[in-house]
Nucleic acid binder design. Structure first.
Length: 539
RNA sequence: GUCCCCAUCGUCUAGUGGCCUAGGACGCCGGCCUCUCACGCCGGCAACACGGGUUCGACUCCCGUUGGGGACGCCA
């Protein structure tokens, strides 16, 4: 994109001769500088296209195209349909697409497949964009919208029609539904029987769809980068609809035209698209275009072994942010589903980008496993810097009503919890006692076990010792604490545990000295006093 | 039903004919460390779906069976 735009200068002459563009001939030759109003800019295959979306396609489909002279060698695309949020399966596909281009210095493209105008929503587009962004999967080019390219698809269909490679079909939807129904009853594969395929009239006075004349003999095969050789007998395939009766293009047509125009070299997608592939290869061949390479990745399954769906808790990837996961931890988890590198489990983004090779991806489906994700997330939390964790922790604290905590202080808090939390949610929950006005009432079990049996004198001694500390510093606090333990001939635990309950209300926390320090002198002393007042004043 | 794909511990995986009495990781269990909780460390349980071939030799190659998944739309 950058290359092509750099190449574009206002006074450049339009180049209409680029053979890689499978477009209808340009009717009007218009120089770009004649256009003062905004044109639609789309980059295809390193070539900048300027089009006017509001123009009748036949009139001027392509206003100007400028040869970029710079072709990326490797180009992949992630092509979601905007009918819902980005879930973890889609995220994995996008990740693989991006990783494939990273090692090879290629380009990762986002294309929104919104040819089904009824089901596509702007809300879903935004959700997908947000999800990708959070995961660091922003595209190098795009997002492109198929709805902007309708004229291109229709032009391709028109050409196939003119060349006899497609035909008009006037079968009603009802009659075809009935056909499929009866085929199902006969237990044969439901498919269009081609009843309009050989009629010589091409009626345009009644509603029709444009169907592709699928080769009826031979077979279609490709060398899948993940699955190996896949072969389909052509007689398994029926004549697919390219253009609907309302004049809108369908998925398979749009995909082929875009994949060609965008110079996609590797179509990397879920294996639920395997059965579309022979149809798309036919279209490439019919249009006289080179066929890209394919890689179909195994699907992600839910715990019952079927395709991941909402009932398996397949939620938006952004839910993982809410749940306290780090984007790279999620990426790390996802990349290990179907791919491995020796015995390494933990990968940084950088490592994934240099090591990932789509040809090493396994062929069998994987089941989503939360506990492994948690473990990986815990590792990423531990290896992150406090600075990196800071915004996410603040975000989680805000959800708990903690407004504008002191970031400098939080940077001291975070290291104490990095080994103790598998998610940021857990971290926020565990450090909440630091913010509370009071930790009363104490957790029942903790109080029973450590608090009521405590030695009041020792707590008083600690309180007084700490109170006299000239400076509230970690080392001084520890020395003071140890002094009290030694003076009263106690075990560490005999003092640390009741103090811990007093400070946190629970039986677990970071080290007791660190906890005292983080709490600050004022709050620490107040909580110790509070504890003393609650204990039976004997001994 | 038809076509396509898949098949190693519960889960993610290593394994490309002898290095495998199958390795690692998560989880689980036991222990160590220890002021608690974690982290870390040590140990344990646990798998080649089944049946035929091919071969001196199969987890690895071939065929079949079974099981699982996917696709069969004027959805993508």
């Amino acid at each position: 994109m950058k290359c092509a735009e750099k190449e574009f200068k206002k006074n450049d002459k339009a180049d209409y001769s680029n053979p890689t563009l499978g477009l209808t001939p340009v009717r009007k030759r218009i120089r770009a500088e004649n256009y003062s109003r905004p044109t639609h800019r789309t980059v295809y295959n390193g070539v900048l296209l300027l089009t006017l979306p509001d123009q009748v396609p036949e009139e001027n489909l392509l206003i100007a195209c400028f040869s970029g002279g710079c072709r990326m060698s490797v180009r992949t695309r992630f092509a979601p349909s905007p009918t819902g949020f980005l879930h973890i399966g889609g995220a994995r596909t996008a990740l693989f697409c991006q990783l494939h281009t990273r090692r090879l210095g290629g380009t990762f493209i986002l294309r929104i497949e919104d040819t089904d105008r009824e089901r596509s929503t702007q809300q879903a587009v935004d959700a997908i964009l947000d999800g990708l962004h959070w995961l660091g999967l922003d595209p190098d080019e795009g997002p492109f919208f198929q709805s902007d390219n309708t004229p291109l698809y229709l032009a391709a269909a028109q050409r196939l029609l003119e060349e006899g490679k497609a035909y008009r079909c006037t079968c009603s939807k009802e009659s075809i539904d009935a056909l499929r129904e009866s085929q199902r009853e006969q237990q044969i594969k439901p498919r269009y029987d081609g009843r309009c395929r050989d009629r010589h009239d091409q009626p345009t006075d009644q509603p029709y769809v444009i169907r592709f004349r699928t080769p009826s003999e031979g077979s279609t095969a490709w060398e899948d980068q993940i699955q190996g050789t896949i072969r389909f007998p052509n007689d398994e395939l029926d004549d697919l609809v390219l253009v609907r009766s309302d004049g809108s293009p369908t998925y398979n047509l749009a995909v082929v035209v875009d994949d060609h125009n965008m110079g996609i070299t590797l179509v990397l997608r879920g294996e639920d698209h395997i059965s579309n592939t022979p149809r798309q290869i036919h279209l490439f061949q019919a249009l006289g275009w080179p066929v890209p390479e394919y890689a179909h990745m195994p699907l992600l399954h839910g715990s019952d072994g079927s395709k991941l769906s909402k009932r398996h808790g397949a939620v938006s990837v952004l839910q993982y942010r809410e749940d306290g996961f780090l984007p790279d931890a999620l990426n790390n988890y996802l990349v290990r589903l179907g791919w491995s590198h020796g015995e390494q489990e933990l990968f940084t983004r950088q490592e994934m980008q240099t090591l990932f090779d789509v040809r090493q991806v396994g062929r069998s489906a994987a089941i989503f496993n939360l506990s492994k994700l948690l473990w990986i997330n815990g590792n990423h939390i531990r290896t992150a810097t406090p600075q990196q964790l800071l915004p996410e922790l603040i975000y989680q604290l805000a959800k708990r009503g903690i407004q504008q905590p002191d970031p400098q202080w939080l940077l001291q808090v975070i290291p104490e919890f990095q080994t103790r939390a598998k998610t940021l949610v857990e971290m926020a929950d565990k450090c909440l006692f630091l913010f509370a006005e009071s930790v009363l009432p104490y957790e029942e079990k903790a109080a029973q076990k450590h608090f009521y049996t405590a030695n009041v004198q020792s707590i008083i001694a600690l309180h007084d010792g700490l109170q006299q500390l000239p400076e509230w510093q970690a080392a001084a606090i520890e020395a003071c604490f140890r002094q009290v333990v030694a003076d009263l001939q106690l075990e560490m635990g005999q003092l640390a545990q009741p103090v811990r309950v007093a400070l946190t209300g629970t039986a677990s926390s970071p080290g007791i000295h660190e906890t005292l320090f983080l709490l600050g002198r004022e709050r620490a002393l107040r909580r110790l006093q509070e504890a003393v007042s609650l204990l039976p004043n004997n001994k």
